[in-house]
């Protein structure tokens, strides 16, 4: 919007040692053991610091964090409907712009952050998210992606991968692969048509310092930014709680997740493996893919191969040809 009021320069961190010890997403929440989204929340909160306002559209990170009549956020936080995270954030940002301009609020513009799940971002919340990013509000929209409507018991969302067993896509005799559709590509939706956005990035709980730095970079930009953060869900993806970070790493090693930044039209890639492992290595650790046949897995492999080679998305390491299915 019109007047620049944010002058902060959140520091780029080099290594875990420099990560602030202070917690702003404090212990004491009802998220599951080994919860990926909770880990995302913790890291994002460390990145933003206390001069922040967080918006929590309905989802796990609302319900599990605030049950009951308590909350784990040391900064101001507000629940929004699953539909309107971006719009409520827009209203708050607009309010701060005018209150600062009129001298009614003395401080700097706070970091306004929407922490939406995949449903609250690219499904039912898409309109509000796109509206916020289009209008140029100085706010950060974060999509923590646990690849399902987990709060309501693991139903398919547009971020759920092909072949996943969810409670709305159970594999059966007629539909053996469970989910038959391929997921949306959230950062590309943002990059493709939101000229007010100058910074988009993906990050993963597997690389926490990178994640923190991307949040800070996004906040240092004036205007809207979008982050897509990979947050494995032990309960929804059906793996042992201790493997949350391991799974996140494997996603990157198999090309199921790619860490990159898009800054003023330029792509840079992070953590790209020298050679991608077959997706099967990632899938076999998760019971949500247990029912898939080799043919289904080949279909997934072909989708990932095509995505990694997609035009406009050069990658640092050439993708190998069709790989042997182990």
């Amino acid at each position: 919007m019109a007047n620049p009021v944010k002058t902060q320069n959140l520091e780029h961190i080099k290594g875990i040692r420099k990560v602030p010890q202070e917690e702003y997403y404090v212990p004491g929440h009802r998220t599951c053991q080994g919860c990926g989204p909770a880990l995302v929340y913790k890291l994002v909160s460390k990145a933003t610091g206390p001069n922040s306002i967080f918006l929590g559209p309905t989802g796990c990170m609302y319900v599990a964090n605030t049950s009951y009549l308590c909350s784990p956020w040391a900064y101001p936080w507000m629940h929004t409907q699953i539909t309107n995270g971006g719009a409520v954030a827009s209203g708050i940002e607009a309010a701060y712009q005018v209150l600062i301009r009129k001298g009614k609020y003395k401080g700097e513009l706070p970091n306004i952050v929407v922490m939406a799940g995949d449903g609250g971002s690219i499904d039912i919340g898409l309109q509000a998210m796109s509206g916020m990013l289009y209008r140029g509000h100085d706010a950060l929209f974060i999509m923590y992606d646990n690849e399902s409507y987990a709060n309501t018991g693991i139903q398919t969302s547009p971020a759920t991968p092909y072949g996943a067993n969810t409670t709305f896509t159970p594999p059966g005799k007629k539909i053996p692969e469970g989910k038959v559709l391929f997921p949306k590509d959230p950062p590309q939706m943002v990059i493709g048509s939101h000229p007010a956005v100058h910074y988009v990035a993906t990050a993963s709980v597997a690389y926490p310092v990178d994640l923190i730095n991307k949040v800070r970079k996004a906040l240092n930009y004036k205007g809207p930014a979008f982050l897509h953060l990979h947050a494995p869900c032990p309960k929804g993806w059906l793996f042992d709680a201790k493997k949350t970070v391991e799974i996140a790493k494997l996603a990157i090693q198999t090309g199921m997740w790619v860490n990159y930044e898009w800054e003023k039209g330029e792509y840079t890639y992070q953590h790209t493996p020298k050679e991608y492992k077959p997706v099967k290595e990632y899938m076999k650790l998760q019971k949500r893919f247990d029912h898939l046949t080799d043919a289904h897995i080949a279909k997934m492999q072909a989708f990932i191969d095509a995505k990694l080679k997609a035009p406009g998305k050069p990658i640092a390491v050439p993708v190998q040809g069709p790989r042997e299915m182990a």
Partner: peptide, 8 residues
């Protein structure tokens, strides 16, 4: 808001 932990 809580300060260091959420005793709730």
């Amino acid at each position: 808001a809580p300060v260091k932990e959420n005793p709730g």
